[in-house]
Amino acid sequence: MSTISTDHPVSAVRHTARVTTESPVMRGVLIGAALVFLGLFLFVPLVAVFAEALKEGWETYAASLVEPDALAAIKLTLLTAAIAVPLNTLFGLAASWAIAKFQFYGKQVLITLIDLPFAVSPVISGLIFVLLFGSQGLLGPWLEQHDIKIVFAVPGIVLATLFVTFPFVARELIPVMEALGKEEEEAAVSLGASGWQTFWKVTLPNIKWGLLYGVILCNARAMGEFGAVSVVSGHIRGMTNTVPLHVEILYNEYNFVAAFAVASLLAILALVTLVVKSVVEWKTTLHLAGGEQNHEH
């Protein structure tokens, strides 16, 4: 009797498995196609970057990285990211908090506005800042009078990067916060916790993986941004060149080894980002699974 009852579901499963699965040949073709595509468009270029960078040996590679203009570019990129990422983290926290926990007029408009930098071409975003702050621009004369330089200077680069990267954290956090609801915060407040205590002890631990994920993506984009920064930078070597812009300049000068050496830094950044991202994603799924269990009755 027991053998019959256990046998039955198994055969049923086998039956459905046969129905919903492709033939082995088809499977092989599909997986193969995906792998070939990945290899051609991701793996080969990645290998090519490092191969080209190391073509003339480690010494030339190292020399092109510590060269003053390259160092200046790296410094500027780090500075830009160091300003843009924390600011956008704060902004993302505030925006997602407001959207997830409060009802107000214009909420939908705010969500749309947050997505705007994704919808607009980065070049256009850069141009907007030139039109606003450039010498021919709206605020140009006033800025010149007060001797403030924004376009073709570091502030312009930071502004453009801020604009381009500002959806990342907010986009990541809005669904997380909406899923959490506000009951835990209300519980904390009813137990006497202040606003700050509630944030640090209750909200932040619950959103930390989502937040970290958003910050990583934001950082990757801040360091790798080309279009918008290119428009506002002015390409002054050693002054307003970020790493991506420096790569372009070197490449245009047929200095391939140096160009690829600097580019390899961005490639490494991408690889590190991917690894951290997968770890965080894995952690997030674990956390969410725990959360779901928590809401099961």
Partner: peptide
């Protein structure tokens, strides 16, 4: 404020701090 009222509130879905 809620904090000052010192009321014990038990939420429908418990709202325990999951972490």
């Amino acid at each position: 404020s809620v904090q000052e009222r010192q009321v014990g509130f038990v939420f429908q879905h418990y709202a325990l701090f999951r972490h």
